[in-house]
Design a protein around this nucleic acid. Sequence first.
DNA 1: ACCTGAACACCGTTCAAGT
DNA 2: ACCTGAACACCGTTCAAGT
Lengths: 240, 240
Amino acid sequence: MAGSRRQAGRPVTPVLNRERIAQAALELVSADGTQKLTMAALARHLGVAASALYNHIGGKADLTGLLQDAVMGRVDVSALKAFREGTGTLESALADWARSYRDVFAAHPSLIPLIATLPISGAPATRRMYDVVAAALGHGGVPAQQVVPVIIAFESFLFGSAMDVHAPASIFTSQPGESDAPHFQRFVESFTATLAVTAGGTGGDGREPARDDGERNPYADAPFALGLEALIRATLKLVP
Amino acid sequence: MAGSRRQAGRPVTPVLNRERIAQAALELVSADGTQKLTMAALARHLGVAASALYNHIGGKADLTGLLQDAVMGRVDVSALKAFREGTGTLESALADWARSYRDVFAAHPSLIPLIATLPISGAPATRRMYDVVAAALGHGGVPAQQVVPVIIAFESFLFGSAMDVHAPASIFTSQPGESDAPHFQRFVESFTATLAVTAGGTGGDGREPARDDGERNPYADAPFALGLEALIRATLKLVP
DNA sequence: ACCTGAACACCGTTCAAGT
DNA sequence: ACCTGAACACCGTTCAAGT
């Protein structure tokens, strides 16, 4: 019948594997955030006892590694590959890759603090991504000793920027009277005013309520564009 | 006697306050890392029952906010203040501030993932710091609407860079034969070779063992300098 | 080999009782 | 007001027992 429970003992055909576990973990974390990603909840989502997970993964640290790789694998490196094969410019290829990188993490914001605690490129899909980036930079004429520093500088910025996409907008919502940062407050108003005009957003009066966790932070796009252009320009300057 | 336990009931003079709690939490996290920062361990460090903490702080989220502020308050903004009062250049003031920011977080690496989950400037000391930065940028001639984007771009980069300082060096230690990222591996060798020459470090053979958590990552400095210069240059370009 | 279910040592938080 | 100590609903992980 429908509610039947699986009997104890080895099932005739395996119920779990690392891929199914990673997929379920990603669904869970996307829906409910990092805090709800517990071994018990994950097991329930898979219709299984929590202890069964340990037949396939080493523990929770192993699980986060799986997640890191699953997400990094979605970053679009096709423009960088194309550039290495002679199509397009390094400038636009870097821009495409960087935007994809940030978008991927922006789509899974709750994963960021989780991944932040991990080695930056411990997992295979992550290493593969960096290999493509490195090859493109080398092909573009960036001196060999500078390739890795460039990548790490981008990484730092992209990671921080991805965090920003879902940072609460409360920074922009303090009341003028109670502000302990008057200069900052004034510039925030100048900034949100431009957004209201150019994007037609809700940032006009600077008093919108705190956003849902699933919402995007409109204030993150301009800083991202600014920093990205700065890094790309500096990278191109390294080419002799 | 020495091992005497405090009797139940209100003590004649209070044992705890928010400052003492924050200080103890910082000590704990610096010594043992974020994972060991539990309410029980913190209480033990303070010689108190765990439940006593709740008379002074709202919960663990409140505690992390306290920590964020304690750390942010150590960032040196004196160069920015001086610039606003007519001494020095915006360029060098930004560089000094950025280096201090990164150094402060590099000194408390285990705090980074913890703070990464918090609103970027929820706490008063953090807001005060941003106010000084904003005032200096405005004084330096950065257009009003661009001040906040510049700050956020710096923030993203600095935060990511601080993470990098204590990232495990395992990224640089894979064996040539088993590498699944040959291009990247080659550029890593070019990079570490320059470090071995210029810094006389231990990066010569690219096979040093994983570092202690307390050690600094020598590979983080060049990327930081590169990204910082890129951002400063882009900021100065905004000045009409 | 791969699952269940009980058990273990934790965790953050609440609350009555004490002074 | 500010502490203790017991209690609660969790957590990740281990392991014998089942097939």
